Amino acid sequence: MKMIKTTLIISTLIFSASGMAIDKTGAGALVGAAVGAAAGKDVKSTVGGAVVGAGAGAMLKSGDKGKAARKGGAIGAAVGAGAAVLTGKSVLKGAAVGAGAGGLVGEATH
């Protein structure tokens, strides 16, 4: 049942994202939220997936916004990994969420 639900959510988001004229940040957020919802069991994993996906989408942009997002993502990954080490959490997860958040901040501040 969970596999059917996951497939339905991802299929719906893929078709809705392809039908809309959204940028890479929005598409990344949709896909990340779907993957987070499918992989996790709560809202926290969905939000974390959306942040990582949006940051990844922002980093894939070309031009100055993409460059700023990639720079922010690198800094965010380092900060997220460091915070994860200090709190005893997963370093990989901390780096991923930090990179996503840093990518979004880098894009927004450009």
Score class of each variant (00 low, 15 high):
27 A>Q: 09
71 K>D: 02
19 G>E: 10
63 G>H: 05
29 A>D: 07
49 G>V: 09
28 G>N: 06
34 A>R: 06
39 A>C: 13
28 G>I: 04
19 G>Q: 14
63 G>Y: 01
27 A>M: 13
55 G>Y: 02
74 A>I: 09
47 V>G: 01
73 G>Q: 00
72 G>S: 00
53 G>I: 01
21 A>C: 04
84 A>M: 09
22 I>S: 08
26 G>P: 04
47 V>P: 06
77 A>D: 04
40 G>S: 09
41 K>F: 09
56 A>W: 08
75 I>G: 05
67 K>Y: 04
84 A>Q: 02
71 K>R: 10
42 D>A: 15
24 K>Q: 06
64 D>P: 08
42 D>H: 12
18 S>D: 13
44 K>H: 10
38 A>F: 03
31 V>K: 07
35 V>I: 15
48 G>P: 04
26 G>S: 12
70 R>A: 07
57 G>R: 00
21 A>Q: 13
44 K>P: 01
78 A>K: 01
51 V>H: 02
75 I>S: 03
30 L>P: 01
18 S>L: 15
57 G>K: 06
23 D>T: 00
68 A>T: 05
33 A>P: 05
27 A>I: 08
48 G>Y: 09
45 S>E: 11
56 A>Y: 02
76 G>V: 00
22 I>Q: 08
62 S>V: 00
64 D>K: 15
81 A>E: 04
46 T>V: 14
16 S>K: 11
64 D>G: 12
82 G>S: 10
43 V>A: 13
38 A>M: 05
49 G>A: 13
48 G>N: 13
73 G>T: 08
74 A>V: 11
79 V>R: 08
81 A>S: 13
78 A>S: 10
41 K>S: 14
47 V>I: 14
48 G>C: 11
39 A>Q: 10
23 D>F: 09
52 V>N: 01
84 A>V: 05
17 A>N: 07
26 G>A: 14
48 G>M: 12
18 S>R: 15
83 A>Y: 06
81 A>Q: 02
22 I>K: 07
26 G>W: 04
67 K>F: 03
40 G>P: 08
52 V>F: 09
28 G>C: 06
44 K>L: 11
34 A>G: 15
19 G>Y: 10
28 G>K: 07
21 A>H: 13
39 A>D: 07
77 A>E: 01
77 A>M: 10
53 G>W: 01
73 G>W: 03
17 A>L: 14
71 K>A: 13
67 K>E: 03
81 A>H: 09
59 M>F: 09
60 L>E: 01
50 A>D: 03
54 A>P: 04
84 A>G: 10
83 A>T: 10
51 V>E: 00
77 A>Q: 04
36 G>R: 11
75 I>W: 10
72 G>A: 06
68 A>R: 03
43 V>K: 14
43 V>N: 05
57 G>W: 00
21 A>K: 14
45 S>W: 09
61 K>E: 09
72 G>T: 09
68 A>Y: 06
80 G>W: 05
43 V>C: 07
66 G>P: 00
69 A>I: 08
32 G>D: 03
65 K>Y: 01
58 A>I: 07
21 A>G: 13
77 A>W: 07
20 M>C: 14
82 G>I: 05
